[in-house]
Computed example of a mutant assay.
Amino acid sequence: MPQGTPMQHIPTICPYCGVGCSLTLCVEDGRVVRAEPGPSPSVNGPALCAKGRFGFDFVTHPDRLRAPLIRSRGRLVPASWDDALALVAGRLAEAAAVGGPSAVGGFSSARCTNEENYLFQKLFRAGLGSNNIDHCARL
């Protein structure tokens, strides 16, 4: 039986929370087959949580979004990042101008780093004047 390509070991950061655990993805024939703790020293040392070790199937899932989608004539169509961000920024600014700062709000992710979440809340509080901010990190 012919051998496939040799297994690649790709160091990365776990995507499941803001801790920033180091992990190594073991990739064989273009597919992630295993996740292992990354090089030490790291915040997670020689261990991974269950999500970090076993939760990599989303990488190649057929339903995974690969580009931003913008609704056009009732349908979602792929768009560039520049177009999607311009649309969101314009709509947020418009909603805040029409309904005041309390008309807008933001919902952040526990998968973001603390620094990213800080910048997110700063955008809404200082940039748009809204304190309507929440996140999904309800553990």
Results as ranks from 00 to 15, higher is better:
Q3D: 12
Q3A: 15
G4I: 07
T5L: 13
P6I: 09
P6L: 05
Q8I: 02
Q8S: 02
H9A: 13
P11A: 11
T12E: 05
C14T: 06
P15W: 00
Y16S: 05
C17F: 12
V19W: 00
V19K: 04
V19E: 04
V27N: 12
V27I: 14
R31V: 11
R31H: 12
R31I: 06
V33Y: 08
V33E: 10
R34P: 04
A35D: 02
P39V: 01
P41Y: 12
P41K: 05
P41R: 10
S42T: 08
V43K: 12
V43S: 02
P46W: 01
L48C: 11
A50V: 08
R53T: 01
R53H: 08
G55R: 01
F56I: 00
F58L: 10
P62M: 11
L65Y: 04
L65M: 10
R66W: 03
A67S: 15
A67M: 14
P68Q: 07
L69C: 03
R71N: 11
S72T: 10
S72L: 14
R73C: 03
G74L: 02
L76W: 15
V77G: 03
P78T: 10
A79R: 03
A79N: 04
A79L: 10
A79Y: 07
D83V: 07
L85Y: 02
L87R: 09
L87C: 08
A89Q: 13
A89D: 15
L92M: 15
A95F: 02
S102L: 11
S108P: 01
S109N: 07
A110L: 06
R111M: 06
E115A: 14
E116T: 11
E116A: 09
F120L: 12
Q121G: 00
F124Q: 00
R125M: 09
R125S: 05
R125Y: 11
G127E: 09
L128M: 10
L128V: 01
S130K: 09
N132K: 06
N132E: 07
D134G: 12
A137R: 02
A137D: 07
A137P: 00
R138Q: 10
